[in-house]
Simulated scan of single mutants.
Amino acid sequence: MGPTCLKNLVETLSSGDQQDLLKLAADSIEMGLKGTQLEVDLTVYSGALRDPGASFVTINVRDQLHGCIGSLEIKRALVIDVVKNARAAAFDDPRFSTLTQEEFEDLHIHISVLSSPETIECASEDELVRQLRPGIDGVILEDGASRATYLPSVWEALPDPQKFLRQLKCKAGLSLDHWSETMKVQRYTTKCMSSRVSSGKRR
């Protein structure tokens, strides 16, 4: 699937598609709590959900981050990507303890569906900073074996483009003032959706 198709996928997900993704994410986590895998029948979902796609799933418990796992590369159908990333966010994010049943009942699920990344051409950090679009761009930074991304939602905590970029370098394991001719920077946009699980019921 080419960049234009991926951009269209992000732009044309229907409200029904979004609700399907949120329900599947919650079901995947709930099945994980029971020690089983959610089986997905692709034939019952729309073409947009069956198409290859990349997503990030973020979970919060009592308004505190409790896991975030995602895909930057297109590897599988969008619906499968969301199901796998939701389970991984709940149980495999090494920064957090494994989600419990009690926490599940006060869970907030946020899904970001990514557009195809596009390269930002720049010859200096100042030039790159000028091209960033706060609140819009997700950014992937890569230099050699170092790689990291910030979703567009991170702009809420880091609204200054230079601070945003330098903290992203830090996340990638690079120095704050790092710059090299081999560094690659890409941007993407996201389609976001969210829902809350309360007392075992989605709302």
Rank of each mutant, 00 (worst) to 15 (best):
A54E: 13
W155R: 09
G47Y: 00
S180F: 08
S112P: 15
Q19H: 01
S28L: 06
R87H: 09
T190Y: 07
S199P: 07
W179G: 06
S124V: 11
V83E: 06
G173R: 09
L72H: 08
D51K: 10
V57A: 04
T43M: 01
A148T: 05
S124Y: 11
S194I: 00
I120K: 04
N85M: 02
D17I: 04
V83C: 11
H108K: 13
C122D: 07
L158P: 10
Y45I: 06
L132C: 12
S195K: 05
L99P: 15
K7V: 10
R203W: 14
F91Q: 07
G135Y: 01
L151M: 11
S97E: 11
R130K: 15
L72K: 03
S194W: 01
A148L: 12
V40E: 00
K169W: 13
A77R: 02
P134C: 09
V139Q: 07
G35N: 03
Q64F: 00
S112N: 14
G138M: 13
A77Y: 01
L114S: 13
R95S: 04
V40K: 00
G32E: 06
H178E: 03
M183P: 06
Q37L: 10
K34R: 10
L9A: 14
V44P: 08
W179K: 04
S14Q: 10
H66Q: 05
R203K: 15
Q186G: 02
T119L: 12
K34G: 05
G200M: 12
E30H: 14
